[in-house]
Computed example of a mutant assay.
Amino acid sequence: MDQRELASLTAELVSVPSHEDETAAGDTIEAWLRQETDADVTRDGHGNVVARRGDPSAPSLALVGHHDVVPPGEPQVDEAGEYVVEERDGRLYGRGSADMKGAVAAAMLAFRDAEVEGASRDRSGAGDAERGGTAEDGGIKLVFASFVGEEIGGVGARGAINDGFVPDYAIVAEGSTNYSKPGVTDVVIAHRGRRASTLVAHGANAHASVPEKGVNAVYRACDAVGVVRELDYPEVDVYGERVRGSIAVTEIDGGSAWNVIPDSCTVTVDERTVPGEYAPLDRAEEIEGVEWRVDQDLPPMACSDDAFADAVLDAAGDVQEGEPEHVTKPHATDAGWLAEAGTACVVCGASEPGEAHTDTESVSLAVLSRCYRIYRTTAEYGTSFAE
Protein backbone atom coordinates (compact mmCIF):
# COMPACT_ATOMS: atom_id res chain seq x y z
CA MET A 1 0.00 0.00 0.00
CA ASP A 2 1.28 3.45 -0.85
CA GLN A 3 -0.12 6.75 0.31
CA ARG A 4 -1.64 7.49 -3.08
CA GLU A 5 -3.77 4.36 -2.89
CA LEU A 6 -4.94 5.37 0.57
CA ALA A 7 -5.63 8.95 -0.54
CA SER A 8 -7.59 7.71 -3.57
CA LEU A 9 -9.73 5.31 -1.54
CA THR A 10 -10.40 7.96 1.11
CA ALA A 11 -11.42 10.49 -1.54
CA GLU A 12 -13.72 7.94 -3.13
CA LEU A 13 -15.46 7.21 0.17
CA VAL A 14 -15.71 10.89 1.15
CA SER A 15 -17.26 11.77 -2.22
CA VAL A 16 -20.27 9.50 -1.57
CA PRO A 17 -23.05 11.32 0.34
CA SER A 18 -24.07 9.40 3.45
CA HIS A 19 -25.70 11.86 5.86
CA GLU A 20 -29.27 10.84 5.00
CA ASP A 21 -28.80 7.38 3.50
CA GLU A 22 -25.68 5.25 3.95
CA THR A 23 -26.60 2.72 1.25
CA ALA A 24 -24.34 4.04 -1.51
CA ALA A 25 -21.34 4.37 0.82
CA GLY A 26 -21.93 0.83 2.04
CA ASP A 27 -22.15 -0.34 -1.58
CA THR A 28 -18.76 1.23 -2.30
CA ILE A 29 -17.12 -0.42 0.72
CA GLU A 30 -18.69 -3.80 0.01
CA ALA A 31 -17.68 -3.74 -3.68
CA TRP A 32 -14.08 -2.84 -2.82
CA LEU A 33 -13.78 -5.63 -0.26
CA ARG A 34 -15.15 -8.19 -2.69
CA GLN A 35 -12.79 -7.04 -5.42
CA GLU A 36 -9.64 -6.54 -3.36
CA THR A 37 -9.83 -9.41 -0.84
CA ASP A 38 -10.83 -13.04 -0.68
CA ALA A 39 -12.61 -12.43 2.63
CA ASP A 40 -16.10 -13.53 3.59
CA VAL A 41 -18.00 -10.26 3.03
CA THR A 42 -21.54 -9.76 4.30
CA ARG A 43 -24.08 -6.92 4.36
CA ASP A 44 -26.48 -7.35 7.22
CA GLY A 45 -30.07 -6.20 7.46
CA HIS A 46 -29.07 -2.97 9.17
CA GLY A 47 -26.74 -1.91 6.33
CA ASN A 48 -23.48 -2.71 8.13
CA VAL A 49 -20.61 -4.10 6.05
CA VAL A 50 -18.63 -6.89 7.72
CA ALA A 51 -15.73 -8.91 6.31
CA ARG A 52 -13.79 -11.79 7.89
CA ARG A 53 -10.55 -13.57 7.04
CA GLY A 54 -8.10 -15.85 8.82
CA ASP A 55 -8.67 -18.82 11.09
CA PRO A 56 -12.42 -19.04 11.82
CA SER A 57 -11.76 -20.77 15.14
CA ALA A 58 -9.13 -18.28 16.35
CA PRO A 59 -9.73 -15.25 18.59
CA SER A 60 -11.05 -12.32 16.58
CA LEU A 61 -9.67 -8.81 16.18
CA ALA A 62 -12.03 -6.31 14.55
CA LEU A 63 -11.09 -3.05 12.84
CA VAL A 64 -14.24 -0.98 13.32
CA GLY A 65 -15.50 2.21 11.71
CA HIS A 66 -18.70 3.83 10.48
CA HIS A 67 -19.64 5.25 7.09
CA ASP A 68 -22.47 7.60 8.05
CA VAL A 69 -21.66 11.29 8.49
CA VAL A 70 -23.34 14.39 9.87
CA PRO A 71 -24.98 16.75 7.32
CA PRO A 72 -22.43 18.72 5.26
CA GLY A 73 -21.88 22.44 5.64
CA GLU A 74 -22.39 24.87 2.77
CA PRO A 75 -18.73 24.78 1.61
CA GLN A 76 -18.82 20.97 1.50
CA VAL A 77 -21.36 20.60 -1.30
CA ASP A 78 -21.32 22.02 -4.83
CA GLU A 79 -24.18 23.58 -6.82
CA ALA A 80 -25.32 20.13 -7.93
CA GLY A 81 -25.51 18.95 -4.33
CA GLU A 82 -22.48 16.66 -4.63
CA TYR A 83 -19.90 16.40 -1.86
CA VAL A 84 -16.78 18.50 -2.44
CA VAL A 85 -13.46 16.67 -1.92
CA GLU A 86 -10.17 18.58 -2.10
CA GLU A 87 -6.57 17.60 -1.43
CA ARG A 88 -4.05 20.26 -0.49
CA ASP A 89 -1.03 20.65 1.76
CA GLY A 90 -0.99 16.97 2.64
CA ARG A 91 -4.59 16.90 3.85
CA LEU A 92 -7.86 15.72 2.37
CA TYR A 93 -10.83 18.05 2.91
CA GLY A 94 -14.49 17.06 2.85
CA ARG A 95 -17.41 15.97 5.02
CA GLY A 96 -16.49 12.69 6.69
CA SER A 97 -12.77 12.85 5.90
CA ALA A 98 -11.85 12.94 9.61
CA ASP A 99 -15.04 11.44 11.03
CA MET A 100 -14.35 8.90 9.81
CA LYS A 101 -14.08 7.69 6.24
CA GLY A 102 -10.32 8.28 6.14
CA ALA A 103 -9.81 5.83 9.00
CA VAL A 104 -12.29 3.43 7.39
CA ALA A 105 -10.13 3.47 4.25
CA ALA A 106 -6.99 2.85 6.32
CA ALA A 107 -8.71 -0.06 8.08
CA MET A 108 -9.89 -1.53 4.76
CA LEU A 109 -6.35 -1.53 3.38
CA ALA A 110 -4.88 -2.92 6.61
CA PHE A 111 -7.52 -5.67 6.57
CA ARG A 112 -6.51 -6.56 3.03
CA ASP A 113 -2.75 -6.44 3.57
CA ALA A 114 -2.23 -7.92 7.04
CA GLU A 115 -0.56 -11.35 7.04
CA VAL A 116 -2.75 -13.37 9.36
CA GLU A 117 -2.94 -16.78 7.69
CA GLY A 118 0.12 -18.51 9.11
CA ALA A 119 2.65 -17.86 11.81
CA SER A 120 2.41 -14.39 13.24
CA ARG A 121 5.16 -12.30 14.72
CA ASP A 122 5.30 -11.35 18.34
CA ARG A 123 5.54 -7.78 19.55
CA SER A 124 9.32 -7.70 19.16
CA GLY A 125 9.01 -8.69 15.49
CA ALA A 126 10.12 -12.33 15.98
CA GLY A 127 8.31 -15.20 14.32
CA ASP A 128 6.70 -18.19 16.00
CA ALA A 129 9.93 -20.20 15.87
CA GLU A 130 11.73 -17.53 17.94
CA ARG A 131 8.88 -17.45 20.44
CA GLY A 132 8.74 -21.22 20.70
CA GLY A 133 5.08 -21.20 19.72
CA THR A 134 3.14 -22.54 16.78
CA ALA A 135 1.15 -21.02 13.95
CA GLU A 136 -2.01 -22.16 15.69
CA ASP A 137 -1.36 -20.26 18.91
CA GLY A 138 -0.57 -17.08 17.00
CA GLY A 139 -3.45 -17.28 14.55
CA ILE A 140 -6.23 -14.73 14.46
CA LYS A 141 -9.51 -14.12 12.76
CA LEU A 142 -9.29 -10.60 11.36
CA VAL A 143 -12.57 -8.74 10.97
CA PHE A 144 -13.43 -5.46 9.29
CA ALA A 145 -16.70 -3.75 10.17
CA SER A 146 -18.17 -0.46 9.03
CA PHE A 147 -21.40 0.45 10.78
CA VAL A 148 -24.32 2.69 9.88
CA GLY A 149 -26.04 5.11 12.24
CA GLU A 150 -23.12 5.91 14.55
CA GLU A 151 -23.96 9.61 14.47
CA ILE A 152 -27.50 8.94 15.70
CA GLY A 153 -26.72 6.77 18.69
CA GLY A 154 -24.93 3.69 17.37
CA VAL A 155 -27.89 2.19 15.53
CA GLY A 156 -25.77 -0.08 13.34
CA ALA A 157 -23.46 -1.23 16.12
CA ARG A 158 -26.38 -2.06 18.38
CA GLY A 159 -28.09 -3.99 15.62
CA ALA A 160 -24.96 -5.98 14.81
CA ILE A 161 -24.37 -6.78 18.49
CA ASN A 162 -27.96 -7.93 18.89
CA ASP A 163 -27.36 -10.22 15.92
CA GLY A 164 -24.30 -11.74 17.63
CA PHE A 165 -21.40 -9.54 16.51
CA VAL A 166 -19.12 -9.55 19.56
CA PRO A 167 -15.43 -9.86 18.56
CA ASP A 168 -12.85 -10.68 21.20
CA TYR A 169 -10.85 -7.52 20.51
CA ALA A 170 -11.54 -4.33 18.57
CA ILE A 171 -9.75 -1.21 17.44
CA VAL A 172 -12.40 1.44 16.87
CA ALA A 173 -10.90 3.89 14.40
CA GLU A 174 -12.25 7.13 15.87
CA GLY A 175 -9.86 10.01 16.47
CA SER A 176 -6.92 9.72 18.87
CA THR A 177 -4.34 11.99 17.21
CA ASN A 178 -2.83 14.97 19.07
CA TYR A 179 -4.38 13.94 22.38
CA SER A 180 -1.22 13.63 24.49
CA LYS A 181 0.94 15.94 22.37
CA PRO A 182 1.04 17.41 18.84
CA GLY A 183 1.95 15.09 16.01
CA VAL A 184 1.29 11.82 17.84
CA THR A 185 -1.45 9.24 17.36
CA ASP A 186 -2.32 7.90 20.80
CA VAL A 187 -4.34 4.91 22.01
CA VAL A 188 -7.58 5.64 23.86
CA ILE A 189 -8.22 3.15 26.66
CA ALA A 190 -11.36 4.81 28.04
CA HIS A 191 -13.97 7.33 26.99
CA ARG A 192 -16.99 8.98 28.48
CA GLY A 193 -20.55 8.07 27.57
CA ARG A 194 -23.56 10.36 27.27
CA ARG A 195 -26.86 10.13 29.09
CA ALA A 196 -29.54 12.57 27.98
CA SER A 197 -32.31 13.11 30.49
CA THR A 198 -35.46 15.18 30.87
CA LEU A 199 -36.88 16.45 34.13
CA VAL A 200 -40.62 17.10 33.86
CA ALA A 201 -42.15 19.37 36.48
CA HIS A 202 -45.93 19.29 36.89
CA GLY A 203 -48.05 22.03 38.45
CA ALA A 204 -51.53 23.56 38.20
CA ASN A 205 -52.77 26.45 36.05
CA ALA A 206 -54.10 29.70 37.52
CA HIS A 207 -54.44 33.31 36.47
CA ALA A 208 -51.14 35.07 37.04
CA SER A 209 -52.91 37.78 39.08
CA VAL A 210 -53.64 35.15 41.74
CA PRO A 211 -50.54 32.94 41.68
CA GLU A 212 -51.44 31.33 45.00
CA LYS A 213 -54.40 29.65 43.28
CA GLY A 214 -52.06 27.53 41.15
CA VAL A 215 -48.87 25.49 41.46
CA ASN A 216 -46.01 26.99 39.46
CA ALA A 217 -44.27 24.23 37.50
CA VAL A 218 -41.39 26.56 36.59
CA TYR A 219 -40.60 27.03 40.29
CA ARG A 220 -40.57 23.26 40.77
CA ALA A 221 -38.32 22.90 37.73
CA CYS A 222 -35.95 25.50 39.17
CA ASP A 223 -35.82 23.56 42.43
CA ALA A 224 -34.93 20.45 40.43
CA VAL A 225 -32.20 22.39 38.60
CA GLY A 226 -30.82 23.34 41.99
CA VAL A 227 -30.53 19.66 42.88
CA VAL A 228 -28.68 18.96 39.61
CA ARG A 229 -26.27 21.83 40.22
CA GLU A 230 -25.23 20.35 43.56
CA LEU A 231 -24.42 16.88 42.21
CA ASP A 232 -20.78 15.81 42.11
CA TYR A 233 -19.31 14.79 38.77
CA PRO A 234 -18.61 11.05 38.63
CA GLU A 235 -14.94 10.05 38.38
CA VAL A 236 -13.07 6.77 37.84
CA ASP A 237 -9.50 5.59 37.15
CA VAL A 238 -8.75 3.40 34.12
CA TYR A 239 -5.16 2.12 33.87
CA GLY A 240 -4.00 5.12 35.85
CA GLU A 241 -5.88 7.61 33.66
CA ARG A 242 -8.53 9.71 35.42
CA VAL A 243 -11.87 9.86 33.60
CA ARG A 244 -14.17 12.60 34.91
CA GLY A 245 -17.77 13.04 33.86
CA SER A 246 -19.90 16.16 33.75
CA ILE A 247 -23.48 17.28 34.22
CA ALA A 248 -25.11 20.33 32.62
CA VAL A 249 -28.61 21.68 32.25
CA THR A 250 -28.86 22.65 28.59
CA GLU A 251 -32.53 23.57 27.99
CA ILE A 252 -35.57 24.69 29.96
CA ASP A 253 -39.06 25.13 28.55
CA GLY A 254 -42.29 26.00 30.35
CA GLY A 255 -45.31 28.22 30.33
CA SER A 256 -47.96 29.11 27.77
CA ALA A 257 -48.67 32.82 28.23
CA TRP A 258 -47.41 35.81 30.21
CA ASN A 259 -50.52 35.87 32.39
CA VAL A 260 -50.91 32.15 33.15
CA ILE A 261 -49.25 30.24 35.98
CA PRO A 262 -47.52 27.35 34.14
CA ASP A 263 -48.66 23.81 34.83
CA SER A 264 -45.70 22.16 33.05
CA CYS A 265 -42.00 22.77 32.59
CA THR A 266 -39.27 20.54 31.15
CA VAL A 267 -35.53 20.63 31.79
CA THR A 268 -32.95 18.93 29.55
CA VAL A 269 -29.84 17.53 31.23
CA ASP A 270 -26.68 16.47 29.42
CA GLU A 271 -24.61 14.04 31.47
CA ARG A 272 -21.21 12.70 30.39
CA THR A 273 -20.87 9.35 32.10
CA VAL A 274 -17.78 7.35 33.08
CA PRO A 275 -17.26 3.59 33.16
CA GLY A 276 -19.27 2.07 35.99
CA GLU A 277 -20.58 5.36 37.39
CA TYR A 278 -23.63 7.59 36.95
CA ALA A 279 -24.65 10.81 38.63
CA PRO A 280 -27.67 10.28 40.96
CA LEU A 281 -30.10 12.31 38.88
CA ASP A 282 -33.00 10.46 40.50
CA ARG A 283 -32.55 12.83 43.45
CA ALA A 284 -34.39 15.46 41.42
CA GLU A 285 -37.54 13.39 41.87
CA GLU A 286 -37.44 14.24 45.56
CA ILE A 287 -38.90 17.59 44.48
CA GLU A 288 -42.69 17.30 44.59
CA GLY A 289 -44.26 17.08 41.13
CA VAL A 290 -40.97 16.32 39.32
CA GLU A 291 -40.34 13.16 37.35
CA TRP A 292 -37.10 12.08 35.65
CA ARG A 293 -36.81 10.15 32.40
CA VAL A 294 -33.79 8.94 30.42
CA ASP A 295 -34.02 9.72 26.70
CA GLN A 296 -30.64 8.39 25.52
CA ASP A 297 -27.84 6.46 27.18
CA LEU A 298 -24.67 6.02 25.13
CA PRO A 299 -22.33 3.82 27.18
CA PRO A 300 -18.80 4.79 28.18
CA MET A 301 -15.85 2.54 27.37
CA ALA A 302 -12.98 1.15 29.41
CA CYS A 303 -10.60 -1.35 27.84
CA SER A 304 -11.05 -4.65 29.67
CA ASP A 305 -7.69 -6.15 28.67
CA ASP A 306 -4.48 -4.33 29.56
CA ALA A 307 -2.33 -6.69 27.44
CA PHE A 308 -4.34 -5.75 24.37
CA ALA A 309 -4.15 -2.05 25.23
CA ASP A 310 -0.39 -2.38 25.60
CA ALA A 311 -0.08 -4.29 22.32
CA VAL A 312 -1.83 -1.55 20.35
CA LEU A 313 0.33 1.05 22.10
CA ASP A 314 3.42 -0.95 21.12
CA ALA A 315 2.22 -1.03 17.51
CA ALA A 316 1.58 2.72 17.60
CA GLY A 317 5.07 3.29 18.98
CA ASP A 318 6.64 1.09 16.32
CA VAL A 319 5.32 3.14 13.40
CA GLN A 320 5.85 6.76 14.49
CA GLU A 321 8.69 8.88 15.77
CA GLY A 322 6.72 10.41 18.63
CA GLU A 323 5.90 8.59 21.84
CA PRO A 324 2.20 7.65 21.94
CA GLU A 325 0.43 7.27 25.26
CA HIS A 326 -2.65 5.68 26.70
CA VAL A 327 -5.19 8.51 26.85
CA THR A 328 -8.90 9.10 27.42
CA LYS A 329 -11.49 10.58 25.08
CA PRO A 330 -14.23 12.99 26.15
CA HIS A 331 -17.13 11.67 24.08
CA ALA A 332 -18.89 8.42 23.18
CA THR A 333 -18.14 6.12 20.25
CA ASP A 334 -19.33 2.70 19.09
CA ALA A 335 -16.59 1.28 21.32
CA GLY A 336 -18.98 1.83 24.22
CA TRP A 337 -21.55 -0.55 22.76
CA LEU A 338 -18.91 -3.17 21.94
CA ALA A 339 -17.30 -2.93 25.38
CA GLU A 340 -20.70 -3.27 27.02
CA ALA A 341 -21.22 -6.47 25.01
CA GLY A 342 -17.89 -7.94 26.17
CA THR A 343 -15.34 -6.88 23.54
CA ALA A 344 -11.96 -5.60 24.72
CA CYS A 345 -11.76 -2.23 22.93
CA VAL A 346 -9.38 0.61 22.29
CA VAL A 347 -9.89 3.68 20.10
CA CYS A 348 -7.16 4.69 17.66
CA GLY A 349 -7.56 6.89 14.60
CA ALA A 350 -6.47 9.88 12.58
CA SER A 351 -9.00 12.54 13.54
CA GLU A 352 -7.72 15.38 15.73
CA PRO A 353 -9.64 17.19 18.49
CA GLY A 354 -11.94 19.84 17.04
CA GLU A 355 -11.72 18.54 13.46
CA ALA A 356 -14.91 16.49 13.11
CA HIS A 357 -18.31 18.02 12.27
CA THR A 358 -16.82 21.31 11.06
CA ASP A 359 -17.28 23.06 7.72
CA THR A 360 -13.51 22.79 7.18
CA GLU A 361 -13.20 19.12 8.18
CA SER A 362 -10.00 17.50 6.96
CA VAL A 363 -7.60 14.67 7.70
CA SER A 364 -3.83 14.32 7.36
CA LEU A 365 -2.87 11.78 4.71
CA ALA A 366 0.40 11.07 6.53
CA VAL A 367 -1.49 10.28 9.72
CA LEU A 368 -3.88 8.02 7.80
CA SER A 369 -0.82 6.09 6.58
CA ARG A 370 0.34 5.88 10.18
CA CYS A 371 -3.04 4.47 11.23
CA TYR A 372 -2.87 1.91 8.44
CA ARG A 373 0.45 0.73 9.84
CA ILE A 374 -0.89 0.61 13.42
CA TYR A 375 -3.87 -1.50 12.37
CA ARG A 376 -1.79 -3.83 10.22
CA THR A 377 0.96 -4.22 12.81
CA THR A 378 -1.52 -5.04 15.57
CA ALA A 379 -3.21 -7.63 13.36
CA GLU A 380 0.14 -9.23 12.59
CA TYR A 381 0.91 -9.57 16.30
CA GLY A 382 -1.71 -12.30 16.12
CA THR A 383 -2.95 -13.21 19.56
CA SER A 384 0.36 -12.59 21.32
CA PHE A 385 -1.41 -10.02 23.47
CA ALA A 386 -3.79 -12.72 24.73
CA GLU A 387 -1.06 -15.09 25.95
Rank of each mutant, 00 (worst) to 15 (best):
Met1Leu: 05
Gln3Pro: 00
Arg4Leu: 03
Val16Asn: 05
Glu22Ser: 13
Ala25Asn: 14
Thr37Ala: 13
His46Thr: 07
Val50Phe: 10
Leu61Arg: 06
Val64Cys: 12
His66Ile: 06
His67Gln: 08
Val69Phe: 02
Pro71His: 07
Pro72Ile: 12
Glu74Pro: 12
Pro75Asn: 07
Val84Leu: 10
Asp99Arg: 11
Met100Ile: 13
Arg112Ile: 00
Arg112Thr: 01
Asp113Gly: 08
Ala119His: 04
Asp122Gln: 01
Ser124Lys: 13
Gly125Leu: 03
Ala126Cys: 07
Ala129Gly: 08
Glu130Thr: 12
Gly132Met: 02
Glu136Ile: 01
Ile140Lys: 02
Phe144Thr: 06
Ala160Trp: 05
Ile161Ala: 01
Val166Ala: 03
Asp168Thr: 14
Tyr169Ser: 00
Tyr169Ala: 09
Asn178Pro: 05
Pro182Gly: 02
Arg194Leu: 14
Ala196Gln: 09
Thr198Phe: 04
Ala201Gln: 01
Asn205Leu: 04
Ala206His: 09
Val210Met: 15
Lys213Met: 14
Lys213Trp: 09
Gly214Glu: 08
Arg220Trp: 08
Ala221Gln: 12
Val228Arg: 09
Val228Leu: 11
Tyr239Asp: 14
Gly240Ala: 15
Glu241Ile: 15
Glu241Arg: 15
Arg244Leu: 05
Asp253Val: 07
Asp253Gly: 11
Ile261Phe: 07
Pro262Asp: 10
Cys265Val: 11
Glu271Leu: 13
Thr273Ile: 09
Pro275Met: 13
Asp282Cys: 04
Arg283Trp: 10
Arg283Gly: 02
Arg283Glu: 14
Ala284Ile: 07
Glu288Met: 01
Glu291Trp: 04
Gln296Thr: 13
Leu313Ser: 03
Gln320Thr: 12
Glu323Gly: 02
Glu325Val: 02
Glu325Thr: 00
Val327Ala: 11
Thr328Tyr: 06
Lys329Val: 01
Lys329Trp: 12
Ala335Ser: 15
Ala335Leu: 09
Gly349Arg: 05
Pro353Arg: 10
Glu361Pro: 09
Ser362Gln: 09
Ser364Val: 08
Val367Arg: 15
Arg370Asn: 15
Arg373Pro: 07
Tyr375His: 03
Thr378Ala: 07
Ala379Asn: 14
Ala379Asp: 08
Gly382Asp: 04
Thr383Cys: 03
Phe385Tyr: 14
Glu387Gln: 12
Glu387Trp: 03
